[in-house]
């Protein structure tokens, strides 16, 4: 798909993209006049293209082994880290927008330290490391 700048009679260039939870926001820019526009992809089409292992945009750099397999599998199912009920309950107290980042950070710390299960104590340790709160 191409977009045409009707002022310059030239194609807009791909500038970047943002993940919009299912669909993508793809930004284009006219190299002549600098006009920018964004296209929001249809979530269904986005999933179809993703399921073919195709990167949207000009993202052909650096192939990662089993990238599609690892990214398409439900993340909770590929993790080797378990959460205690207490830890799960504490995670739910983290604001929704920050929860994925907090979960990733805590699991990263657990992997580094060789923990197989996240407990409230490990959450405290992570808080201390990332936020300097003890």
């Amino acid at each position: 798909m191409k977009f045409l700048c009707l002022k310059c009679d030239g194609y807009l260039n791909y500038e970047g993209q943002e993940d919009l939870e299912g669909s993508l926001g793809i930004i284009f820019r006219c190299p002549g006049c600098g006009y920018r526009t964004a296209m929001v992809t249809n979530p269904a089409e986005t999933h179809l293209v993703h399921s073919m292992g195709i990167r949207i945009g000009s993202g052909t750099s650096g192939h990662a082994p089993l990238e599609l397999t690892r990214t398409a599998l439900d993340e909770d199912r590929i993790t080797d880290i378990e959460w205690t009920e207490e830890a799960k309950s504490r995670l739910e107290n983290v604001p929704l927008f920050a929860r994925p980042m907090a979960k990733t950070g805590i699991e990263k710390l657990a992997r580094e330290k060789g923990y197989k299960k996240i407990t409230a104590e490990i959450m405290d340790e992570a808080r201390e490391r990332y936020m300097g709160i003890s």
């Binding site: 269904a44 599998l73 439900d74």
Partner: peptide, 15 residues
């Protein structure tokens, strides 16, 4: 890639 034996293969999103 599946951590626990009882888990089934589940893909992200509507896929």
């Amino acid at each position: 890639f599946v951590s626990r034996e009882e888990n089934c293969t589940r893909w992200k999103g509507p896929i």
